[in-house]
Design a protein around this nucleic acid. Structure first.
Lengths: 200, 200
DNA sequence: AATCATGGCTTGACACTGTCAAGTCGCAAT
DNA sequence: ATTGCGACTTGACAGTGTCAAGCCATGATT
């Protein structure tokens, strides 16, 4: 990459790493700068403030999530409910693999995306991918039910992801964190089956 | 309340209020102290550090949530799935009504409850109330399915709550925030019905 | 060739934060 | 009368995000 945008990328990478390590709150501009080997004000040349960095991270995260969902869905479009299940798994996988991104994406208090339309757009795309595809899998249901099922599945995936990251799920079920992913997968599979999807 | 614990309570109240207003990050010990009309170090007499305050808030929140769930469940224990639906609604209502508590309860990075066993215990009680009761409503299912449905419903409620607080749900569905609660209720009702509970 | 502008940083300062350390003051018990 | 203690206060420190200004190599303009 050109030296002009070199530091910009370094800042973003360092940010994701720091968030993943210690949570969003521990992300300090100055530590990012230190990690990148520049002065504490250097990041300001590329980002107007701390919030702008987080918004960029969030936007990038939503893009990754959207891609992930899309790949998962198209890989399992054949079996009924296959896409729904695969997307749910992908959602949870994403959260576990990229906790730094996930936090930046879903902490409206720390990162008000209203001020960052590009990131907001990526969010919209990702969620549309998810919700619309779920709707397709329940094509034989009335419109209202279709939408409610879509929202319900989305919420379940999101809930699983956050409860896993937080640790509540493993604690309540009394399982090691390593097994969380499998449990989440089984849960999604069972629920989707019970909901009785008719299409991909 | 006795003057001895007067300030303690004031600190907790002010904290909840400040979190609800500006998010967890905006909660500053010094502002809490200012709001309570004492010096910036006074809160330290009752709480060892910022984290301890948040843990106390979280603990109190889990207690309130647990009570809320219990009341909801016992009020609708008659119809099949009634308790599950009512608890889901109660979960979402709680998040919307007490966003300050909710954030303190579910931000493990900012409030590691591992260091605060009392709050942790309240969390456990609240979730047990929820998960066990859901299990009862699907008593005719095999044990594994029962647990998965319980986890799935819990996750759905939690996901709905967080997505609503974050604003994502209203945005995606293109509805005003005021209608979120109703939409969430309908979603829960539909999903529970489709899951086909056999008991309360 | 000399001047200027600009991009990409650095240095310095400010108010604010959480927290350690020490001090103050009123009151109850000895 | 003195001690001890609970309930605070005052002061200081390092760390933070951000405003303001300065530096300096490169390239364009005059």
């Amino acid at each position: 990459m050109r030296p002009a945008t070199d530091l910009r990328q370094k800042v973003l990478d360092a940010s994701v790493e720091l968030i993943a390590e210690g949570g969003l709150d521990r992300l300090s501009l100055r530590e990012v700068a230190r990690k990148a080997g520049v002065s504490h004000q250097a990041p300001y040349h590329y980002f107007s403030d701390r919030e702008a960095i987080l918004a960029a991270v969030a936007g990038h995260g939503f893009e990754k999530l959207g891609d992930s969902l899309e790949r998962a869905a198209s890989r399992h479009a054949a079996e009924p409910g296959g896409a729904v299940e695969a997307m749910g798994q992908a959602y949870v996988d994403f959260a576990l693999r990229y906790p730094g991104y996930f936090q930046a994406m879903f902490r409206a208090d720390a990162v008000p995306l209203d001020n960052h339309p590009e990131a907001r757009k990526r969010e919209d795309e990702a969620f549309s991918e998810l919700v619309d595809r779920i709707g397709e899998a329940f094509a034989d249901q009335p419109e209202a039910v279709k939408r409610q099922v879509a929202v319900g599945c989305w919420a379940m995936a999101h809930g699983l992801a956050t409860l896993m990251l937080e640790g509540s799920l493993a604690r309540k079920l009394n399982i090691p964190k390593g097994r969380q992913k499998k449990i989440a997968g089984d849960t999604i599979a069972t629920i989707v089956r019970l909901l009785g999807p008719s299409g991909g």
